[in-house]
Every structure is written in structure tokens, then in C-alpha cells.
């Protein structure tokens, strides 16, 4: 379980997170929704230890990670898989090498084992036979799938998705969401996803949390969020600009 308590972060004089609390149950898919520029990616970076909070803490299975550095933090990260917004694939390597990279460099597996696992990972994301291509030669949707394969190839316990469907057409958005759902059923990882794909995320999420002005203003199962009476949540779900409802 991931427990976030009172997470606060400012950049200069600009507060981004203002005492954020959240609980992510083990084995669930928790989707963080909220407006662009609302601090969702900043929040995710705190969970993976790329940013340090000004106050508050993040606990992973009871162990506080916010004060960790170096090897202690790396030990926690070994349990993680991360899918970045743009894929963050190494453009000097082929798609297969990208997927093989954590197996070779982190797990130091023998070459035949790496080949076997890379092929299986590419098949799992529907990219069989595409491994030799460079990330620049494949479509945006394929890049996202390679990124998902790379994040999952080490069989992590917790997977973070930072807007994995940004910039894709509605068909690809659905394809990626169902791929994530299918992989989640197969590997049973805990997933934390940042997204603003409404209403698609309601089909895959176990829990949805609405982040607004640095705080989680509503959290619950998709049906409860969809029926929420909170004005901010209602406006966001319906795509209504601020000040146009209840004014």
C-alpha cells in the first residue's frame, strides 16, 4: 500500500501541492485526475522519488521513502516500473534494446534469458517482430507500448503511468487502456496512473482521485466519482470551464 500524508511542495513562491493525502491500496488501479498544470505529474514525481517534498511523507508498505537517498532509495525503486508521459525511450537504442536495458543493466540476466523476456514483453504489448526498429521510426502509440513493455519487463510490484495516452487518437487511447487492464490482470501490480482521459479511465480504474489546487478533493470508486456532488469534480468530468456552473 502507498500512503501519502500531508504532501506539500512549492517551486519558488508558487505552491503546487498543499498538504495532499491519499491511500493507494495494493493491487489496485488508482487514477489521479485533475486539470492540466494542477500538479499531477509533480505528485507522481514525489511517489517515485524524483522530487522531495517541502513537508509531508510518502510511505510504501509502511516504509517512509521521502527521506531516502542513494542505495536505500534505489532499493525501493527496484520495485517500481514507470511509464513516462513521452515514453522516455532511449533514442540511441532499438525498441528491443530499450526493453532489454533494465534486464541487462539492473538485473544482469544472461543474454538468452534477456532475449526470451524481451520477446515475451513485446508480444504482450502487441509489438511482435518490431523490436529492431528505432523509437524514432515507430508511431506514438507504438512508442507508448514499448515504454509499457520496458516498465513491466522486470515484473515490478508498483507501476506508475504518467499520462500514458496523451497525444493519441481515441482508438489508441482505448487500446492502451485495455492493454494496461489486461497486463494488470495478468501481473497483479499496483498501478498509479495520472490521466485526464474522461470518461475512458472510469472503465479501468478501481479508485479515482481528483486533484485540485494541490489537494485531493474527492476520492472513491469510479461510480462514486461520476455521481459526485462536488462542484470541482462535476465541472471537470463534464468538461465545463470554471465559473460556468453554480455561479
Amino acid at each position: 500500500m502507498i500512503l501519502v500524508q500531508g504532501l506539500t511542495k512549492s517551486f519558488g513562491r508558487q505552491p503546487v501541492l498543499r498538504g495532499l493525502d491519499l491511500e493507494v491500496p495494493t493491487g489496485s488501479i488508482t487514477v489521479i485526475i485533475g486539470r492540466s498544470g494542477g500538479g499531477k505529474s509533480v505528485f507522481l514525481k514525489h511517489l517515485i522519488g524524483l522530487l522531495r517534498p517541502d513537508a509531508g511523507r510518502v510511505l510504501v508498505d509502511g516504509a517512509q521513502i521521502t527521506g531516502l537517498r542513494g542505495r536505500a532509495l534505489d532499493d525501493v525503486r527496484r520495485r517500481y516500473g514507470v511509464v513516462f508521459q513521452g515514453g522516455a525511450l532511449f533514442d540511441s537504442m532499438s525498441c528491443a534494446d530499450n526493453v532489454a536495458f533494465p534486464l541487462r543493466e539492473r538485473l544482469r540476466l544472461p543474454r538468452p534469458e534477456i532475449t526470451k523476456r524481451v520477446e515475451a514483453a513485446l508480444v504482450a504489448v502487441g509489438l511482435e517482430g518490431m523490436g529492431a526498429k528505432n523509437p524514432a521510426e515507430v508511431s506514438g502509440g507504438m512508442r507508448k507500448r514499448v515504454a509499457i513493455a520496458r516498465a513491466l519487463v522486470t515484473e515490478p510490484e508498483i507501476v506508475f503511468f504518467d499520462e500514458p495516452t496523451t497525444g493519441l487518437d481515441p482508438v489508441l487511447v482505448n487500446t492502451i487502456h485495455h492493454l494496461i487492464l489486461d497486463l494488470h490482470r495478468r501481473y497483479r501490480f499496483t498501478a498509479v496512473m495520472v490521466s485526464h482521459e474522461i470518461p475512458e479511465i472510469f472503465e479501468i480504474a478501481d479508485t479515482v482521485a481528483m486533484l485540485h489546487e494541490g489537494r485531493i478533493v474527492e476520492v472513491g470508486p469510479p461510480a462514486a466519482i461520476q455521481a459526485s456532488q462536488n462542484r470541482v469534480v462535476r465541472q471537470f468530468i463534464r468538461g465545463v470551464p470554471e465559473n460556468s456552473e453554480g455561479a
Binding site: I48, G49, L50, D74, D75, R77, R78, Y80, V82, F84, A88, L89, F90, F101, P102, E105, R106
Partner: peptide, 8 residues
């Protein structure tokens, strides 16, 4: 960042 979160 990808390298960092891979604990590399």
C-alpha cells in the same frame, strides 16, 4: 529520469 527510476 528513466535511468534514475530504474535505480541506475
Amino acid at each position: 529520469d528513466a535511468l534514475t527510476v530504474m535505480a541506475l
